[in-house]
Amino acid sequence: MIHFVLLVSRQGKVRLTKWYSPYTQKERSKVIRELSGVILSRGPKLCNFVEWRGYKVVYKRYASLYFCMCIDEDDNELEVLEIIHHFVEILDRYFGSVCELDLIFHFHKAYYILDELLIAGELQESSKKTVARIISTQDQLVEAAKEEAGSISNIIAQATK
């Protein structure tokens, strides 16, 4: 299973974290610190796997961002590597040629999308189309609620004038 997902920039800034195994806040910071050190220092053209504390971390760099997933030692590494790519493709489709800034300012979107892709550290959906459909339905729900709320808040605002 995937124990956690970590997105770090080349400067070591964390862009997204998701933990499927229980880690305390302290452990989370430690893991991020340690792994950023290990992964950011790896040169290009090396393999996408790092052995770390009895686990394996599968990572891939896209432009300035490193996508990392920590798995058990005997999990299938390449399968997870392609889950990363699958995630990136979905982000790309959603944002329209995604860049780091999209993920910074819309980090909550990245979380929504990730939740449609993985649950319990396992792949939930391998169709990009299906994920896109679900996310756009959610967006519509939010928009609809906002319009409604807008009108109500208008009413309240007027009432309290």
Binding site: P22, Y23, Y111, Y112, D115, Q138, L141, V142, A145, K146
Partner: peptide
């Protein structure tokens, strides 16, 4: 009661807290 708040509640809770 509304989806947007509920969604945020669920997602942030599952990121901030762990199972214990």
């Amino acid at each position: 009661p509304k989806f947007p708040e509920k969604q945020v509640g669920y997602i942030v809770t599952s990121c901030l807290l762990n199972e214990n």
